[in-house]
Nucleic acid binder design. Structure first.
Length: 458
DNA sequence: TCGCCTTTGAAGATG
DNA sequence: CATCTTCAAAGGCGA
C-alpha cells in the first residue's frame, strides 16, 4: 500500500522525467476521494464534520459566512510571487552584482508590502563589507542576520551603531562597537570573557522553507480571518503548506536553502547550538511527561491481547496528562499528504549537504532536486503513510501536542475491524484498517462526526 | 512580563 | 544510525 501510495504521490521517484514534475500531488485515488468528500479544500467543510465544536473554531469566520476558509484556498486566487530571477523593481542590481549572494527573498517584498528584510529606521550600514553591497543585499542582511558575528573585511570602517533587528540582545544594540568588532584582546579575565559572552549577539537560525512560507502568507490568512491567534493561523498555514503543489513548495525549499547558504557565509562560525537555551522553556518538562505518556501507550500496546478500542482509551488517558490545548482545526483529511513531521520525509528537499554541494541548478531541473523525495524514505515512514486516515489524524491531534507523533510509529499497526469498535468510540476512532480506503472510512466519519477536538475536552 | 500554543524543517544532542 | 530536542515566526492569552 505504501509503495503504491508513494508511486502515486511521487511519480518522479521512478520516472524522473520532466513530464512528471507537474502536479505532483496529483490525483491519487485518495485525493479523488478527498475531493469528493471534502470538496476542493477540506477546510471548507470542517464545520460540517465538526458540528459540535464550541471552541475557538466558532468565531473562526474567515471571510464571508459560509465560506470559512474557502478563499484561503491556495490555488484559488492567491497570486504566487515572482521567482527571484523575475524580480527586480526593488533590487535594481542584477543578482550577479550582489557578491554572488543574491537576495533570496526579494520577491517577498512586493508581496508583503514591506520588505521581509527591511531597513531599520534611519538606515543601516551594511554589516558585511566583504560583500558587494546593494539594496538587495543590504536589506537581506540587515533584517535578520546580525552583523556582529561577521569578521569585518575592513575593520576600520565606522560602525553606525544602528540596532539590528535580528539581534536579540538589547545590550548589543546599544553597543557602539560590538566586542566581535573590537581588536582582539590578548588576555581577558574570565569575568570579561563571560561578560562578552553575554553580550554576544543572538544570531537567529535561518528560516526554513515552512517558516518562509508562513512569513509570506500569514498576513493574507490573518487578513481573511477574524481569528488572530498565531496558533490557529499556523494550523491553517500548516495545512495550506501541505496543499501546496510540489513546485510551489520547491520555491520555498530553494529559498530556505539560499538562506542557509547565505547565513553560513555571513556567520561561518555560527552553529544552531549557539542558540540552545536562549529560549527559556518549560516545554522541556512537558515534553518529557509527554514522552512518558507515550511510553505508557506503547507499553499498553505491547499487550497484544488488548482490543484496539481499549488501546484507544489508553491513549486518551495518556493524552489527558498533557497540558490542555486547543486544536483550532478539524482533523486533516486522509492521505492528503503524509502530514506533519513524517510528511517531511517525503516533502523535504535535498539534504543540506546535498543542497549545498550542488549550487543552484537550473530552475527546470532544480525543482526536482530541491524536493527529491526520499528515495530513502524509511520503511516505518511508509508504513505510517499507509496507515494514515482521517481518524488516525484525529487521534493524533488529540493525543499529541508537539509533533511527538511525527517520529513515532503508528499507534495501530494492525487492521482494525470497525465492527469491533464501540459505537461511541467511532466518534474518534483510533484508526481504520490499513486496507480500508479513505473513501470507505470517511462516510463513517461523517455519520459520526468527530468528537471534539480540544485536547482540554478530555 | 514571560512563556505557551501551533505549524514544519533544519540541525544539534542523545542513546 | 535512529530518535529526540530545540529553535526559527507570530500574536493572543494565561499565569
Amino acid at each position: 500500500i505504501s509503495f503504491q501510495y508513494l508511486q502515486m504521490k511521487w511519480p518522479l521517484l521512478d520516472v524522473p522525467s520532466s513530464a512528471t514534475v507537474k502536479d505532483t500531488r496529483s490525483p491519487s485515488p485518495a485525493h479523488l476521494v478527498n475531493l469528493k468528500f471534502y470538496g476542493l479544500e477540506k477546510e471548507h467543510h470542517f464545520q460540517f464534520l465538526n458540528p459540535n465544536i464550541t471552541f475557538p473554531l466558532e468565531h473562526w469566520a474567515c471571510g464571508p459566512v459560509g465560506n470559512s476558509l474557502t478563499h484561503l484556498s491556495l490555488e484559488a486566487g492567491i497570486p504566487r510571487p515572482p521567482h527571484p530571477s523575475e524580480l527586480s523593481p526593488y533590487y535594481p542590481l542584477s543578482p550577479g552584482a550582489v557578491g554572488q549572494i543574491p537576495h533570496p527573498l526579494g520577491w517577498l517584498v512586493p508581496q508583503q508590502g514591506q520588505p521581509m528584510y527591511s531597513l531599520p529606521p534611519g538606515g543601516f550600514r551594511h554589516p558585511y563589507p566583504a560583500l558587494a553591497m546593494n539594496a538587495s543585499m543590504s536589506s537581506l542582511v540587515s533584517s535578520r542576520f546580525s552583523p556582529h558575528m561577521v569578521a569585518p573585511a575592513h575593520p576600520g570602517l565606522p560602525t553606525s551603531g544602528i540596532p539590528h533587528p535580528a539581534i536579540v540582545s538589547p545590550i548589543v544594540k546599544q553597543e557602539p562597537a560590538p566586542p566581535s568588532l573590537s581588536p582582539a584582546v590578548s588576555a581577558k579575565s574570565p569575568v570579561t570573557v563571560k561578560k562578552e559572552e553575554e553580550k554576544k549577539p543572538h544570531v537567529k537560525k535561518p528560516l526554513n522553507a515552512f517558516m518562509l512560507y508562513m512569513k509570506e502568507m500569514r498576513a493574507k490568512v490573518v487578513a481573511e480571518c477574524t481569528l488572530k491567534e498565531s496558533a490557529a493561523i499556523n494550523q491553517i498555514l500548516g495545512r495550506k503548506w501541505h496543499n501546496l503543489s510540489r513546485e510551489e513548495q520547491a520555491k520555498y525549499y530553494e529559498l530556505a536553502r539560499k538562506e542557509r547558504q547565505l547565513h553560513s557565509q555571513l556567520y561561518p562560525t555560527w552553529s544552531a547550538r549557539d542558540n540552545y537555551g536562549k529560549k527559556k522553556k518549560r516545554k522541556r518538562e512537558k515534553q518529557l511527561s509527554q514522552t512518558q505518556s507515550q511510553q505508557q501507550v506503547h507499553e499498553a500496546e505491547a499487550l497484544s491481547h488488548l482490543e484496539p478500542w481499549v488501546l484507544w482509551n489508553v491513549r486518551a488517558l495518556a493524552s489527558k496528562s498533557k497540558k490542555p490545548c486547543v486544536q483550532y482545526l478539524p482533523p486533516e483529511k486522509p492521505c492528503d499528504s503524509p502530514a506533519s513531521s513524517h510528511g517531511s520525509m517525503l516533502d523535504s528537499p535535498a539534504t543540506p549537504s546535498a543542497a549545498l554541494a550542488s549550487p543552484a541548478a537550473p530552475a527546470a531541473t532544480h525543482s526536482e532536486q530541491a524536493q527529491p523525495l526520499s528515495l530513502t524514505t524509511k520503511p516505518e515512514a511508509r508504513a505510517q503513510l499507509a496507515l494514515h486516515s482521517a481518524a488516525f489524524l484525529s487521534a493524533k491531534a488529540a493525543a499529541t501536542s508537539s509533533g511527538q507523533m511525527g517520529s513515532q510509529p503508528p499507534l495501530l499497526s494492525r487492521p482494525l475491524p470497525l465492527g469491533s469498535m464501540p459505537t461511541a468510540l467511532l466518534t474518534s476512532p483510533p484508526s481504520f484498517p490499513a486496507t480500508l480506503h479513505a473513501h470507505q472510512a470517511l462516510p463513517v466519519l461523517q455519520a459520526q462526526p468527530l468528537s471534539l477536538v480540544t485536547k482540554s475536552a478530555h
